[in-house]
Design a binder for these strands. Structure first.
Lengths: 175, 175
DNA sequence: GTCTATAGTCCGATAGAC
DNA sequence: GTCTATCGGACTATAGAC
């Protein structure tokens, strides 16, 4: 993973071959593909951990709490996990933003996060389309907040940015 | 485009080669790649048209209309464009839902739609992060409404489903 | 670890429309 | 004369089969 991020940063995603990543990591190309399904996946390894945090937060929330509040709290918790990895997250974000192929994979991971959150809400009794829309809103706040955190040089906690994004949506919905 | 959709429906996306698509359309493989950047793009050709509809609707809205209302109206208009193509849209949705590679591309197109809407809102003076969040909410309503339309056999207008999704989010935001 | 199919790029040639 | 469409061959890297 480190070898890949370094190479993608140095030469760009398209300018890097899987053989080069494998060589820098000291393994063969076949071994690379045994660990990661494709050339992109190497940058998305920890994403299922975030999903567990979000789903867990939704499941553990008080029974009759408002769905949007539950999800907003969950995504803020999830964001806080990234606070410790700010350097890796920042370098990774630069590469992803520069590469459409990586953006696609990132969006698929966010969609998986959103589906998991919507499922957890439905299990709490939230009906459709409310469950899907609340999940979308939460993941959107996470994404927008994360981007602002990266863009502003990470001087404020990422969870603050995320909460600011969800507050902005609530305000607009009330107009 | 017809050749590709037919083949993807018959044999699946992975079971179809670009050479086969080209052959069925009566051109060479090289010609296929001059029209479409890759194997996926052939199913996403009209998407920039939807973007124009949405951005146009946002630009033409009354000056001090509420941003979320403007975007909701815009995505409902955009959805209505698909009403005429319900058969193509339905067949296409089946293939996309079955194929992660195509889902990724679909998500990228939705992200492009979202960025275009956020940009149009900023030009109207909406600040961040409100502009991004309102754009996310609108595109989410479009996606959720479209899926419900496909899932229910298209017996009600797609724009109805989209409006129902945005109404559900407003309701949740008020709790 | 070996072998192979296929997606996708780069080079260039040709030909009709206006 | 320029624009745009088709086509061909050779090539490389990704990714899957075994």
């Amino acid at each position: 993973m480190r070898a890949a991020l370094d190479l993608y940063s140095e030469r760009g995603f398209d300018g890097t071959t899987t053989a080069e990543i494998a060589a820098r990591a000291g393994v063969t190309e076949r071994t690379y593909f045994r660990h990661f399904a494709d050339k992109r996946e190497v940058l998305f390894d920890g994403s299922h951990l975030l999903e567990e945090v979000l789903v867990g937060a939704i499941e553990d929330a008080p029974e009759n709490a408002a769905p949007l509040g539950v999800v907003d709290a969950g995504v803020a918790t999830m964001a806080a996990v990234l606070e410790d990895r700010r350097e890796f997250a920042g370098r990774r974000a630069v590469v992803v933003d520069a590469t459409p192929h990586l953006q696609e994979r990132e969006l698929l991971k966010l969609a998986s996060l959103r589906d998991a959150a919507a499922g957890a809400l439905r299990r709490r009794g939230v009906a459709e389309p409310a469950a899907s829309m609340v999940a979308e809103a939460g993941v959107a706040a996470f994404r927008v907040g994360f981007e602002a955190w990266i863009a502003t040089g990470q001087d404020r906690p990422v969870a603050d940015h995320v909460r600011e994004a969800s507050a902005a949506l609530r305000e607009q919905a009330a107009r």
